[in-house]
Amino acid sequence: MGETIVVTSGKGGVGKTTTTANLGTALAFAGYKVVMIDTDIGLRNLDVVLGLENRIVYDIVDVTHGNCRLKQALIKDKRFSSLFLLPAAQTKDKTAISPLEMEDLCDDLKEDYDYILIDCPAGIERGFHNAIAGADKAIVVTTPEVSAVRDADRIIGLLESADLRDPKLIINRIRPRMVKDGNMMDIEDIVDILAVELIGVVPEDEKIIISTSKGEPAVMDAVSKAGEAYRRIAQRIRGEEVPLMNLEVSNPIMETLRRLIGMR
């Protein structure tokens, strides 16, 4: 019996789709059977981030409307044979599926897959309620900005009133240099305010842009810092205890001095 995890945020553009794609890929790489569901009907993007846009035949609305069988709509990933995508419909809107249909869909998938990751649309309307309907657990993605954290707080409240208790927090696109200079909020500031458990911190990384351009998730890139952060989050989802990434920036002048006087 698998587990359904919804990836949500409230605010758009904080990295829900990137997070879903990377965690799905990392879990499949670790040998698990994984399905990612794009619930952003009308504005689908998970297919593009994964580089699977040319393989779509059927979508989630076709499944719930009975135009095809569930297995026919699942697209197998290019890299991992245990990773699948159920794409959103592009020409319909959020009312094309109901929370009840999502619940049934997730129940069906849980029988055959270890992890079902749901990519939630931005906002708190119908799309959000569809996305969380079949979820057992929730991951909230935010960036270290006032607007994103504010929306994350609202989402955490809504998740809890929908009985999705103890959501886990990912702080995305942190810039260690700017934090060190006192120009943006730090991890502890955000965790302190939101009072939820942190499951990972992802540094700002240009490799993410490159990976999105190519349609290859950054977890496959051994030198990408963001990729490394996502691999660690995937390990924590599997229940392993791994330390947070060291994001400390060193001062180059001080480093040189220290090396010169033999302190390291």
Binding site: E145, V179, G182, M185
Partner: peptide, 22 residues
């Protein structure tokens, strides 16, 4: 003024209002 502290303080206030009006 420290932008990090400004951000945290503004966020704290806005959330008191948000949570209070729920």
């Amino acid at each position: 003024s420290n932008p990090r502290i400004d951000a945290k303080e503004r966020l704290r206030l806005v959330l008191v209002h948000d949570r209070a009006s729920i």
